Amino acid sequence: MTDDNAASALYEILNDVRSSKRQQIGEAWADVLDCKVGTSEFAQRHAEVVNLFRRVHSFVNAMPEGTQRDIYLRYAPAWHAGVVPRGNWDSPQNPPAKVISQSNLDQLGGVMQVLSITSADDFTDEAQDALVRGLKEWKDLLDEAGLPPGISEQVRSQVAHIEWLLANVSLFGSEPVVRESRNLIGLGVEVLQLVPVKARKVGAAMAYIVYMLGLVHAGIDHTAGILEGLNEVSAQIEVITDNPPELSAESNEEIVDAEFEEDPPGESDLDTSD
């Protein structure tokens, strides 16, 4: 994977929009994010670009005195305006070239040189494989009947967004992948509460995600908290069912501490029957 940081990712995206041959800003953004403006999918993906700006601004704001902090902060509004262009996105009077000036973009390039975050490199092939397998487990589960439509669509949308972030991890880095994977764990806990009969299969899908979070540096500190939450849900399930699923504290510890030391769980390692 390439050595990217938030500033270089934001620079690349704004440069792609600015250099677009399209007549309208909206068309340029649609090409860059590979979905139509005005859709829920576009809003979700564009929010990731806004998050890149937030990360860049936070970094610049935290720079020590005596550096170019104050200079860069003067350009921050221009970078924000590039991400969230003012005016009509559908008007030929606002072509993509007007999104941001070359000089303002060059200043962002300066931050790109200063900022040395290699979050994409933290996302190892092993972590990526575990996440892919976990997302596949989720999609297989969603193809079955039994999940309430509302939560099913939430999970399906979350899985699709994580897949897009994973496909673009060299650009956005691992931070949004980890963040949205944690959110998927939260949805999994909700599914366990709503449909405890699916606990085994949901637990298998969640196990891969928890393992991935333990591999990625940004998620290590949160793994214990995630497992604690799963144990609490397991205790609730045990109260309301005559045949509680095997999602106890002991089984969770085995998942992350024993079985995953050699390989992520395969089909033979976890019972995914109802």
Rank of each mutant, 00 (worst) to 15 (best):
N51C: 11
A28F: 00
V50C: 14
E41R: 12
D16N: 05
T39H: 05
W29K: 08
Y11W: 08
G26M: 07
V17E: 05
G26W: 00
E12S: 10
L33I: 09
D16Q: 07
L10T: 07
Q23Y: 04
G38A: 03
E27W: 03
Q44V: 15
S8F: 03
N51A: 15
G38M: 01
V32T: 07
G38Q: 00
W29A: 04
E27Y: 00
E48N: 14
W29P: 05
I25P: 11
E27C: 01
S8H: 09
A47Y: 14
A7H: 07
N15E: 06
W29N: 04
F42S: 09
V49I: 15
A7R: 00
Q24R: 02
E48L: 11
G38S: 03
R45C: 11
Q23T: 07
F53E: 13
I13C: 08
A30K: 05
R45Y: 11
N15Q: 04
K21E: 08
K36H: 01
A30S: 15
V37D: 01
R55E: 15
Q44L: 14
V49A: 13
D31P: 05
G38F: 02
R18E: 02
A30H: 01
E27T: 04
V17G: 02
V50H: 14
Q44A: 15
V50Y: 11
E41L: 11
K21G: 02
R55V: 13
E12C: 04
H46Q: 14
I25H: 04
N51I: 09
V50A: 15
R18S: 02
A7Q: 02
K36N: 07
V32C: 02
Y11K: 08
T39Y: 01
Q44N: 13
A47D: 15
E48P: 10
W29R: 08
F53K: 12
G26R: 06
A7F: 04
R45F: 12
N15D: 04
L52T: 14
E12D: 11
A43Q: 11
I25Q: 08
E48R: 12
S8I: 03
Q44S: 15
I13G: 08
A28S: 06
A47N: 15
I13P: 06
N15L: 01
A7K: 06
E48S: 12
L14P: 08
D16H: 00
L52D: 11
I25V: 14
A28P: 05
L33D: 10
Q23K: 02
A30N: 07
A9C: 13
Q23S: 09
R18T: 00
Q24M: 05
A7Y: 04
H46R: 11
S40G: 13
S20R: 01
Q23D: 03
H46N: 12
W29T: 09
L52G: 12
Q44M: 12
Q44Y: 12
S20K: 00
W29G: 05
A47M: 13
S19Y: 00
T39N: 04
V37M: 10
S19W: 00
V50M: 13
